[in-house]
């Protein structure tokens, strides 16, 4: 119950915040403020945007965009690893959260089997991506990159833009750390070394790591992928 409500609120809040920030950023600088008018416009904007996904064309465009982005960021075979990560992650997140929110029994049956299978793919892809990309998000590299980019992520409260590399690094490392915890908790619950309280701990660790991972993924989409 607590997890259900918290996760829904956090995911909605983060996405509202990210899209609202993105909306404000497109306004002329003097108009970038939290106001009822802006909020109304934002609602109009976001609804229009969401509705555009009712058209197949938008999906096509989004997919093309993602593929191009992946090819640029992950040249060669690495792009396939990225696709594997995206696909497995999408299923993991959807199956996990939908069952957690709407099915009291939790994940079970064939969706659970697929969840486990997708989990394996996710763990492998994440490890490879980490291996390839870790150096890009090392602290000094991030600081260096941030020094070259003064704006990027707009904060409407402080009315200031922050360098995006910091947020990209944060999203990446939180996503990786959450993935690490997700894999560890899965592995832990399967090993014959941990007793019942540990199993309970692993279960909760898995859930909350998944939430952290989804939040990090949302942030990553905003600060890394979508221009």
């Amino acid at each position: 119950m607590f997890f259900g409500i918290t996760s829904v609120l956090l995911i909605i809040a983060l996405n509202l915040r990210l899209t609202f920030g993105r909306f404000l950023k497109h306004l002329p600088e003097p108009e970038r403020e939290i106001s009822a008018d802006n909020f109304k416009e934002y609602i109009n904007w976001i609804v229009r945007w969401k509705l555009s996904f009712l058209r197949l064309k938008t999906w096509d465009r989004a997919l093309d965009y993602l593929i191009n982005w992946a090819k640029k960021e992950y040249p060669g075979w690495a792009a396939w690893v990225f696709y594997g990560l995206v696909l497995s992650y999408a299923y993991l997140a959807l199956s996990g959260f939908i069952f957690a929110w709407f099915v009291p029994r939790g994940l079970f049956g064939f969706p659970l089997l697929l969840h486990v299978a997708a989990g394996a793919l996710y763990a492998i892809c994440l490890t490879i991506i980490l291996f390839i990309k870790a150096r890009v998000y090392l602290p000094d590299k991030v600081a260096e990159k941030a020094s070259k980019e003064s704006s990027g992520f707009y904060c409407p409260f402080l009315r200031k833009s922050w360098p995006r590399p910091y947020f990209q690094a944060a999203a990446f490392w939180v996503f990786v750390l959450a993935g690490f915890l997700l894999a560890s908790s899965t592995l832990g619950s399967m090993l014959p070394y941990f007793n019942y309280p540990a199993q309970i701990f692993f279960f909760h660790l898995h859930r909350w790591s998944a939430l952290a991972s989804v939040l990090a993924a949302c942030l990553a989409i905003d600060v890394m992928i979508v221009e």
């Binding site: 394996a120 763990a123 994440l126 490890t127 894999a183 560890s184 899965t186 592995l187 399967m190 090993l191």
Partner: peptide, 12 residues
């Protein structure tokens, strides 16, 4: 599967 997962966890 456990071995694979353990390998991933170790590398990560």
């Amino acid at each position: 599967f456990k071995l694979l997962l353990a390998g991933c966890v170790l590398v990560m």
